[in-house]
Structures are given as C-alpha cells and as structure tokens.
Design a protein around this nucleic acid. Sequence first.
DNA 1: CACATTCTATGGCGATCACCATATTATGGC
DNA 2: GCCATAATATGGTGATCGCCATAGAATGTG
Lengths: 193, 193
Amino acid sequence: MPRKTDARARAIATAVRLFRIQGYTATGLTQIIDESGAPKGSFYFHFPRGKAQLAEEAIDHYVASRISLLREISANTAGHALKFVHQIFAAFAAEMVASDFQYGCLMQNLANELPALDAELTKRVARGFIDSTEIVAEHFRECGFASARASSTAAALVAAVEGARTIARLERTPAIFQALADVSVRGWAAPKG
Amino acid sequence: MPRKTDARARAIATAVRLFRIQGYTATGLTQIIDESGAPKGSFYFHFPRGKAQLAEEAIDHYVASRISLLREISANTAGHALKFVHQIFAAFAAEMVASDFQYGCLMQNLANELPALDAELTKRVARGFIDSTEIVAEHFRECGFASARASSTAAALVAAVEGARTIARLERTPAIFQALADVSVRGWAAPKG
DNA sequence: CACATTCTATGGCGATCACCATATTATGGC
DNA sequence: GCCATAATATGGTGATCGCCATAGAATGTG
C-alpha cells in the first residue's frame, strides 16, 4: 500500500514556506491547500488532526534540514572553531539573500506564536532548538572546548544567528551577519580594536 | 477640549501586551477591546485607521520604552563597555523572568509577521531597531571604540539579545543570557578557555 | 439652559477561519 | 472482474475576523 500521490508532501512543503513568510496564524489552510496546487477535499484525509498535525510535520521537516545543514558545515570545518562559526553565518546570510529576505526562520516564527496557542507544538519547536544546538556544541567539543564551554558557546551562537535573521529580514541586507563575524574574532567588548 | 477618558491609552497598552504574547494576527480587535476593559463602540473613534493605526502606536510606545531602558543602562555604565553589555543581558533576562517568560519582544513578533502584511508598519519596526541600536553604538563610541566598530558591535549585541529572547521564551530559563555573557568576555571562538 | 464636541452603544457588513460529513472516483492486490 | 483502500470532490457548519454606519449618551464651554 504505497503512497500514490505527492499531495501530502507538497502540503507540508507549502506550509513550511508560508509559515516562514507569513507566520502560523496568518496562514490559512485554504491558502496552503490552494498553493500546494491540489486537492481541497482530501486535506483531512492526509492530516486527520488538522492544522496542528500539519504544523508538526512542517516543524520536523524544517528541523531535519536545519540539522543536516549544520552537520555539513561541521564536517567541512572539522577542528576549526572560528571557521565553523563564520561558515554558519555565511550560510544563513546566503540563504536570506537568495530568497530576497522574504523567508524568516520557521522555528522562530512558531516560537513567537505558539506558546499562547499550543503547548505541544511549542515543545516540539523547543526540542528543535535543543537538537540543533547540540550539533553545534559537538563541533566545539571536537575542537577541544571543555564541555560546559562548548555548550554555552553553541547556545550563544544559535541565539545570535536567530537574532541576525530577524534583523537582516528587516534591513534587507546581510550586514548584520558580517557584524557578528567581526565580533566573533575579537570578543564582544575587548578593550581595544 | 482635553481627553476625558483613558480608553485610548489602555487600548494601546493592551495591544502591546497581546501582540507580545500572541502576535499581531492572532490578536483580534475584539480581544483587545474586551481586555482593555472598555468601550467597544468607540474604537474607530480613537483609531480611525483601525488595527494598523493601533499597531503604529503600539510600536512607538514599545520602542520609546526600550530606548529609555537602554539610555538608562548606558548612563549607569558610562565608559565601561563590558559592564554595559552585561547589564543589558541582565535587564532583558530579568524582564523575562518577571513575566514568567510569557512575553516576547513586540518588535521581533511584528518583524516576523508584518513583512507579508504591511510594508509601512514593517518600516516602522525596522526604524525602531535602527534607533535603539544607535543608542548602543553611541555608548561604545563613548568607550573609545572607533565608529565602525562601535556600530557593528552594537548591531551584533542587539541581534544577540533578540535571539536570546526567542530561546529563553522556549526554554523558560534565562540561561541563554548567561551563555552570551560568558562568550562576551572571551570572544566567540578563542583558541583556549 | 443651549449646543458642539467627545465618547459610547448596537448591529450587521462580507469575508475568512478551521473543521467535517458525505459522496464519488482512482488505485492497489487478488 | 472484485473489492477494500486510498484519494479527491463538494458543500456547508458555526465562529470569528476587521470594519463601519447609525444613533444615543456624556461632557465641556458659552
């Protein structure tokens, strides 16, 4: 009994896209169904629990791709902490430029909208951050960082990236990523340049 | 012809609160009017341009209080870059703890929801970030930072704070602010602890 | 009191929301 | 061809959305 259509996958991909651009609440099922190109009638066949289930799968899909990106960068910069950091900034900056700054971070959007709406989905987003932060921390440990320091550095990096995506989207330039890269080489408030 | 009631001010304050908790789209005018305690009928008397105008004033109100907070911290740490940074982290962390992590940043929420909805309001949010970043940059300049470095450090700091608020809200602990404080004293990827 | 202004109340506009019951068609394995 | 399942189509549920027209009540100054 294999899947016979890709309607399901397309609905998830469209949900990811629209949630990133417009947010969760602002995106109606009608629009997702329309833009996913097909069947209005079968939505609740594929997603019996409705919008919440669609969001679950959208989160999982997004988190998986985010983690695989981080893993790839980590592999490309094995043993080099600074290179790793810079390549992360560069990758996220490049993604925003490529989309003309239309796309926000799905996890960040949901992190802001879901706490008042759905505790279960909120936990799933939180888990996504924990998991992707762990990838980063692992890289730092492999660079020789002590465990505690690797964890806090990873958390700080992930937070900085999220903030940068917010700012970059507003300013429509990747300048903030460059600013973070600069700061990362000399510390935040080092006495002299 | 003085103002006779505070219905207007209460509507704005309620809008700020709900936009921070639930976001812009998820917050209906009905709820704002109800929770602001009063008059349903006079909403379009006070805000002829409707929800967009209310959002404008909510943004202005929030930005003003944010800037005044930053000014206060700047005055309290004149000449000390690191103290300034740490006190900013501490202040935002404390605010989140005090609200039991229910409140997000109004500007961040709107930054994620408005680009697809209202270009004018989006510009206003962007302006709010520019203005509050400038306060931070000014402090760094007064610490002797070169102009360009002061600007990029300020931008990085603002971005990091925003990201930290997202993470802290999900994790329901201010740990991320501590992580950022730790990183700020030693640089992001310094070779050894 | 007169009277303009400020504010509040009511009811409904069309549109959209998430959701679902029902019926029909396409597609497997046998 | 048979038949269960997978998938699509249609139409409508009640609720809520932002918005607004109209009318009435409260409040200030002359």
